[in-house]
Design a protein around this nucleic acid. Structure first.
Length: 427
RNA sequence: GGAGCGGUGGCUGAGUGGUCGAAAGCGCCGGUUUGCUAAAUCGGUGAGCCGGGCAACCGGCUCCGCAGGUUCAAAUCCUGUCCGCUCCGCCA
């Protein structure tokens, strides 16, 4: 969330920002309640000071009478204090609710608008394929090569689950292996993370489990939830920690399964592997100083581009418009791969997303940094980005690399792990 | 799953209801000295919030996993909760 003082000091800016991002919020209400809260706070502190002073006199009391008198006085002061404090806590809780609804501020270059207003920034090195034959989508290609079993997935776990088979398993592992090797070479520490996390961590990152519109699976009778992304577990790794400023940036690449209920998603786009309840993802995560998060964001975007160039998949990069940013994001770039089997005659489909969350997550997670020899601490900046979500990457690879005879080319960088240059159909 | 123990500052780790924001050590900052990829020695050194000051800083409140409770007063006692460790059981 945003800093309360910042909101009050920059009320107009924050109000404009909310409007641009299509979020309704009541800044004036926050300002009013906060000044009331400060009044209560001062009063409670003063009463507490008097009570503390009284308590200190009690052991030194000269007579039993004097002692009893002081005890009585102390009790009275504490009662008063508690009453005031309750009012203050009430106000605080209300303010936090209002405050949490306010999204992060927005990078000046972010275009205003909704999904269609995203700015197209660049294209990948691989051109869109120009097929001179009737193409198949990844589900049809999967059938030809015996790569997926959606029926069994549904039988065992319900719609939205699937089995990978044969070359799909090799591709899945190859993508993970390639992405992790690539990022390790860029200085990221490879990590495999828990696939479950505590509710408090989810909330710190900005997810709300167990709500009516939640996208999160939760485990009954426990504080655990299946993670929707390794962003949760990677960000949570340092929750509550104060880092030495010299340790920054901390660069992690995490491999995890991702689970999403996808409540309310339906239609053509849900066909096949595109929108599923479980997938595997290699995620980048960075903790940086406030000064260097913008640079790191561009770097992470470039790493995503390098990975998809290496996979020989056509894609475009977009700068997501204000209305399409999640609450914590200050700016977000998406890579959309060309998927020939999507829509009518192909369509762009999101394959990665990288966000600079500035200090929005760090404030709630309590991740600070401290410069040695300097007083105080500051919140770090957090960034996340998809290196590769194997399911969607596989769609793009299969559909773009298909040949007229039904065979499928394997991108060069994956060949060592897949074990061949071309996939031969099964039928 | 059963039994026990624990969670204290950047780190390690003491801590008897009031003299505890908390010993000691490490680390860090500064000084002195001897000197040479360092040692000795002295001093300083937690965070958040509120208020005052241009500021260095000063005053106050809070913080010993988290949330409650008892008490005039809680790191210390009680309850719940989360997490960790040890042993036993089970197990890839």
């Amino acid at each position: 969330m945003l800093d309360r003082k910042f909101i009050i000091k920059n009320a107009d800016q924050v109000r404009d920002n909310c409007q641009r991002r299509g979020v309704s919020c009541d800044i004036d209400q926050i300002i009013t309640l906060e000044s009331e809260r400060l009044e209560k706070l001062k009063l409670a502190e003063e009463l507490n000071r008097q009570a503390n002073e009284t308590s200190k006199q009690i052991p030194k009391a000269e007579s039993a009478e004097q002692r009893n008198e002081l005890i009585e006085k102390g009790r009275d002061l504490r009662l008063q204090k508690e009453a005031v404090q309750r009012e203050r806590d009430q106000l605080d809780a209300t303010i936090i609710d209002l405050q949490s609804a306010i999204p992060n501020m927005t990078h000046p270059d972010v275009p205003t608008g909704g999904e269609d207003d995203a700015k197209e920034i660049s294209f990948g090195k691989t051109p869109k394929p120009d097929f001179e034959f009737d193409t198949l989508d990844h589900v049809e290609l999967g059938a030809k090569h015996d790569l997926f079993d959606f029926e069994a997935g549904a039988r065992v776990a319900g719609a939205g689950f699937y089995y990978l088979k044969n070359a799909a398993v090799r591709l899945d592992l190859a993508l993970q292996h390639y992405a992790i090797s690539f990022l390790a070479d860029q200085g990221f520490t490879p990590i495999t993370t828990p696939d479950l996390a505590l509710t408090s961590i989810l909330k710190g990152i900005g997810f709300t489990p167990r709500g009516p519109e939640t996208q999160i699976y939760s485990v009954e009778d426990s504080e655990l939830n299946l993670v929707g992304t390794a962003e949760i577990t990677l960000g949570g790794m340092l929750a509550g920690q104060t880092l030495d400023a010299e340790q920054l940036p901390v660069l992690l690449c995490g491999l995890s399964h991702c689970f999403r209920t996808e409540a309310g998603a339906a239609g053509r786009a849900t066909k096949g592997l595109y929108r599923v309840h479980q997938f595997t993802k290699v995620e980048m995560f960075a903790f940086t100083s406030a000064e260097s998060s913008d640079d790191m964001h561009l770097k992470m975007r470039d790493y995503e581009c390098e990975i998809f160039d290496a996979l020989e998949v056509p894609y475009r990069v977009i700068d997501t418009a204000t209305g399409d940013l999640g609450g914590p994001a200050y700016r977000k770039f998406d890579l959309e791969a060309w998927m020939p089997g999507r829509g009518d005659g192909g369509a762009w489909g999101e394959v990665t997303s990288t966000s600079n969350c500035t200090d929005y997550q760090a404030r709630r997670l309590g991740v600070r940094s401290k410069k040695t020899g300097q007083k105080g601490t500051e919140f770090v900046h957090t960034l996340n980005g998809t290196a590769v979500a194997t399911g969607r990457a596989m769609i793009a690879i299969l559909e773009n690399h298909q040949l007229p005879d039904g065979r499928i080319n394997v991108p060069k960088v994956l060949q060592p792990w897949v074990g061949c240059e071309v996939l031969e159909p099964n039928d």
